[in-house]
């Protein structure tokens, strides 16, 4: 295989991998604050795409439409947490997970009724031919996706390390009770975590719609793959989620190159199973933490 061809596979893998990374980040942020898996994360991704198409169709300029979609989805995440989850917060985590599954079904149905069953498109942010990188062709939109992922990761890092809210979120991820004893409003932290996770998912959805189009059911597959990426990296650690996403994307792309395209979608599920059997804490997780 020539170098240019190999690099092309790597580029393709990093392209889908960064989408998985954004979705995985959402899973990670919620898990860190609450200890539950939010199965509506895929739907936040879908809403980012679908809402930005709608805002754009109303005449808003593309960047404004995207920001509006991200903000609206973040708001929806907050509302979802506040009204669907908070009342049950002392319940068994399984109950909360099932509530998120229910929420995802409601969001999907609403999207189908409001926006129709067909695929929806957005124009590329900066139209133009692909850019040549050492013989491989990289779409301009892919550069946007990577750029936005980097911005999201940096913003999260800054939040966690440099702000009081971030410290509060990290405190919650260690122990809710201890955090409350130190004066942290854990309910507010959980609510904001959902908002952030929704914003991250929506950002991914908006950035990728010019590449892949979107529709009411775009959340299901991406939710599973993002979840697999989050598990692969190790839940609870944002950087691990990003690396998990990129590794998963690369594994998929290289499996097409070296094995067969028939197994591309099965790879993410296979990885999920292997990680859960062999190293459940993921590549970067540590065994010690037990979240109840």
């Amino acid at each position: 295989m020539e170098a240019a061809e190999f690099i092309q596979y790597v580029i393709a893998g990093l392209k889908s991998g960064s989408i998985y990374a954004l979705v995985a980040l959402g899973f990670s942020v919620v898990y860190a604050s609450t200890g539950i898996i939010n199965f509506a994360q895929g739907e936040f991704f879908m809403l980012g795409g679908v809402l930005s198409v709608w805002f754009y169709s109303l005449g808003l300029p593309l960047p404004v439409a995207g920001i509006a979609a991200v903000v609206a989805t973040a708001g929806l995440g907050i509302v979802f947490e506040r009204f669907a989850l908070r009342r049950q917060r002392s319940a068994n985590p399984l109950v909360l997970v099932i509530i998120t599954i229910g929420g995802s079904m409601v969001m999907k149905s609403l999207a189908r009724h409001l926006f129709g069953p067909d695929e929806l498109s957005l124009p590329e942010f900066t139209p133009g031919p692909s850019i040549d990188i050492v013989g491989a062709a990289v779409e301009r939109q892919a550069l946007w996706v990577w750029g936005l992922t980097v911005v999201a990761v940096l913003a999260l890092w800054w939040l966690y390390r440099k702000t009081r809210l971030g410290h509060a979120m990290r405190a919650c991820s260690i122990s809710h009770d201890a955090a409350r004893l130190m004066g942290v409003d854990t309910a507010r932290v959980v609510m904001i975590s959902f908002g952030i996770a929704a914003a991250l998912g929506a950002l991914g959805g908006f950035a990728v719609t010019p590449l892949t189009q979107t529709s009411w059911d775009a959340g299901a597959v991406i939710g599973v793959k993002g979840f697999a990426a989050a598990i692969l990296g190790g839940l609870g650690n944002p950087l691990a989620a990003v690396i998990g996403g990129l590794v998963l994307g690369l594994l998929e792309s290289l499996s097409v190159a070296f094995i067969s395209s028939a197994y591309k979608d099965a790879i993410s599920l296979l990885v999920l199973l292997i990680v859960l059997f062999v190293r459940p804490q993921g590549l970067f997780g540590s065994k010690r933490r037990e979240k109840v």
């Binding site: 061809e5 092309q8 596979y9 580029i11 393709a12 893998g13 392209k15 889908s16 990728v208 590449l211 892949t212 189009q213 059911d217 775009a218 597959v221 998929e252 792309s253 097409v256 190159a257 395209s261 591309k264 979608d265």
Partner: peptide, 11 residues
């Protein structure tokens, strides 16, 4: 349901 076929097309 797949959203990206670049890998297959590269092959």
């Amino acid at each position: 349901g797949d959203t990206d076929m670049s890998s297959q097309l590269t092959k």
